[in-house]
Computed example of a mutant assay.
Amino acid sequence: MTAPLLDIRRIYLEPAAAGLPRGRQVLDRFPAAERIPVQSHWRIPELREGDPEDFLRPKREVLVLGVKKGLAFRPNGRSADFIAPSTSNGCAIACAYCYVARRKGHANPISVFANIEEILAATARHAATLGPKAAPNQVDPRDWVYDLGENGDLSVDALVSDNVRDLVALFRSLPNAKGSFATKWVNPDLLGYDPQGRTRIRMSLMPHGLAKLLDIRAAPVAERIAALPDLHRAGYEVQVNFSPVVLREGWEAEWGALFEELDATLPAAVKDRLAAEIIMLTHNAALHEVNLAWHPKAEEVLWRPDIQEEKRSETGAANLRYRTGWKGRWLQRFRDLLAARMPYCRVRYAF
C-alpha cells in the first residue's frame, strides 16, 4: 500500500494564525498533531538543522501555520501577468530540481497562511484597479492572469485547507481576471470547485523515466495525463508545462513518446485550446550540494558542467544553464518535435 503524501505530526504555528478561522480549520483537520508555537513562520531553527539524509520526513510530517505579511503583486509576463500574494509556500513534493528557496531549511515543508480573507480582498482590489485588459498578450488574450502557486503546489495545498477552494471561487467572480497554478499532483477534490473557466491549471509533465528519477513524491506522469480530461470537464482551463526539459542521451525519443501519449489521451475539446510552456532546466550550485546528500543519482543528469555554464541570478546565486547558443538550438529541436507530434499545441512561452 502506498504511504500517504501527508502524515502531519507537528504543526509550527504563529499565535495570530491560530486565532483566525482558517487557522482553526487547519488545526481541526490535524487534531493529533503536536502544536509548537513560533514567533515567525520564517524562523524555525529545527527545520534549518534537519539531517539532509532524512530529507523527505519534514515534507511528510511537518506543517507550518502562519500569517502572510506582504501583499504585493509582482509583474511577471511569462506564466502570468502578475504573481499574486501566496496563500502558502513550501511543498510536500520533493522535485530534485526545485528552484523554490529553501528558506525554512533544506526540506521546506508546506507553510499555509491563515489570513485568506485578507489575501482574497487584496487580489480583488488589484484586479478592479486594472480594469479590462487593453490588448492580448502571450499570457492570455482577454484576462489578467494571476499566478497563485509560485512557491508551492496548490493541488497539494488543497489537502491542508480550503484556501485553494476560496481562490477558485474568487476568480469565478472576477470579470477581468483568471487564477493560474502549475501542479504535479492529482487531487480529485478540485473537480468539485466549479471554476467556470476562470482558473487555469498548468499540468507539469516530463517523460516517465525522468519523472521517476526527479519528481520525488509527485503523482506519476500517467496519472497527471489521465487527469487532464477530468479537469477540463470540471471547468478548468487546461494547459501543460513541459518543465524542466533535462537533456540526456535519448531525450528526443522519450519526449516524442510522451507527446504521442498525450495526443492519444486528450479529447478534441482540450486539443482545440491547448497551450504549453517549455522551460529548459536551470540548476543551482547550492541545490547541487543538498542533492548530493540525499539523492546523488539525480545529479548525474542535473549537474552537467560539460554542457552547462554558470550564470548569476538577480539575487547573486550561482545558477547553471545550458550553454548559450546550444540552448537555443536544443530548444528549437524540442519545439520542432512538439510541432510534429502535437501540431495543435500552441507554445505560449519558452525559455
Rank of each mutant, 00 (worst) to 15 (best):
H126G: 05
G325T: 10
R341S: 13
N89M: 11
R9G: 10
L302H: 02
A182N: 13
R304M: 06
A293Q: 15
R273K: 15
E117G: 07
P75E: 15
E237T: 15
V112F: 01
M206K: 14
A17H: 04
T199A: 02
I116K: 07
Y236P: 00
R48Q: 11
A169Y: 00
P343S: 02
Y193K: 00
H126W: 10
G209W: 04
A80N: 05
V221S: 04
A92H: 03
K59I: 01
K212I: 02
G197R: 03
C91M: 00
A264Q: 15
D215E: 14
E46W: 09
A318Y: 12
D336N: 12
C98L: 05
L228S: 04
E14F: 06
W144M: 06
M280T: 13
E49S: 13
P85Y: 09
E150H: 08
E46K: 10
L331P: 00
V62A: 04
A257K: 12
S155N: 14
V67D: 02
L174R: 01
L71P: 05
H41C: 12
L63E: 04
A182P: 06
A275K: 13
G316D: 01
A101I: 14
P52H: 03
K69R: 14
E53H: 12
L5Q: 09
G66Y: 03
S173Y: 05
